[in-house]
C-alpha cells in the first residue's frame, strides 16, 4: 500500500457537480434559486403569491423537496408553476445530484426561474451547494430576531434574507432592525426584504429584485 495525499474537501464531488449544473443552467438562461428556511416559515406561501404575481411575465418552475408527501407541489402547481415533488427519503438537505435529477425529470427548457424549495431546516441545507445561482432564506417573525445568532452559517451563505409574516410581528416582539443588524454582522452583503405573504406588503421590492436577478442571469 502507498500513501496518496489528497488534501481535498470531503464534499469536493458535490462542489464539482454543482458548478457544472450552474454552468448548464447559465447556458439555458434558467436562474435556479435555492430557497431555504425552517419548517413553517412560509416558503410555499411565499412562492404561491410570487407565482401568482409573476407567472404572466416569466416561466416559473418549482422543485419541492421534502422528506415525504406531495402537498407542496400540488399547491404551487395550482398557483401556476410547473412543479415536481422530490423526496429526499429521510435526508435533511438537497445536494447537486438530487437537484439535477429533479430538474431533468421535470424538464426545464424555456424556464426562466426555477426555485428549489429545500427541506425545512436552517442547518444542513446551508452546507451543500445545489448548483443554484442565488441563495434566498426566509426567517419568519415568530422564530425570533435572535435566530441569526443561533444558525450563523445559513445567514452567512444567503444572498437574500426574507423576513416573512410581518403582519403578526407585533405579537412576537420581533425587531426588524435588531434582526438585520445581527444578520449583517455575519454577512455585510445580505439583501433583506420584510414582507407578508398574507397582505402582500413588501412584495413589490422582493419581486423587483427577482425580476432583475433573472434578467441579470440571462445577460451574463
Amino acid at each position: 500500500m502507498k500513501i496518496i495525499e489528497l488534501k481535498e474537501t470531503i464534499t469536493a464531488s458535490n462542489d464539482r457537480d454543482a458548478e457544472q449544473l450552474r454552468q448548464e443552467l447559465r447556458k439555458k438562461g434558467t436562474l435556479l434559486i435555492n430557497l431555504m428556511a425552517s419548517p413553517g416559515a412560509g416558503k410555499t406561501t411565499l412562492l404561491e403569491r410570487t407565482i401568482n404575481d409573476l407567472s404572466s411575465q416569466m416561466n416559473i418552475a418549482v422543485l419541492e423537496a421534502d422528506v415525504d408527501s406531495s402537498v407542496d407541489a400540488e399547491r404551487v402547481a395550482k398557483a401556476g408553476a410547473r412543479a415536481i415533488q422530490v423526496h429526499t427519503g429521510g435526508m435533511c438537505h438537497m445536494d447537486a445530484g438530487m437537484t439535477r435529477n429533479g430538474l431533468e425529470e421535470m424538464g426545464y427548457e424555456g424556464i426562466d426561474l426555477a426555485v428549489l424549495e429545500n427541506v425545512g431546516n436552517l442547518i444542513c441545507p446551508a452546507e451543500f451547494d445545489t448548483g443554484a445561482g442565488k441563495k434566498v432564506m426566509i426567517l419568519s417573525t415568530p422564530e425570533g430576531d435572535d435566530t441569526p445568532l443561533k444558525y450563523p452559517l445559513m445567514f452567512r451563505e444567503s444572498d437574500v434574507l426574507i423576513i416573512s409574516k410581518t403582519d403578526v410581528m407585533q405579537f412576537f416582539d420581533f425587531s426588524i432592525e435588531k434582526c438585520v443588524e445581527r444578520a449583517k454582522k455575519l454577512n455585510p452583503n445580505i439583501i433583506f426584504f420584510p414582507l407578508s405573504s398574507k397582505t402582500g406588503e413588501g412584495f413589490d421590492e422582493w419581486e423587483k429584485w427577482l425580476k432583475d436577478a433573472v434578467k441579470e442571469w440571462k445577460n451574463n
Binding site: 500500500m1 500513501i3 496518496i4 495525499e5 489528497l6 488534501k7 481535498e8 474537501t9 470531503i10 469536493a12
Partner: peptide
C-alpha cells in the same frame, strides 16, 4: 470548520 481528506492508503494496479 474544515472537512478535508488529508490522505489515503491505496493499492494500485501497478503495485
Amino acid at each position: 470548520n474544515q472537512c478535508v481528506i488529508k490522505e489515503i492508503e491505496a493499492m494500485t494496479e501497478d503495485d
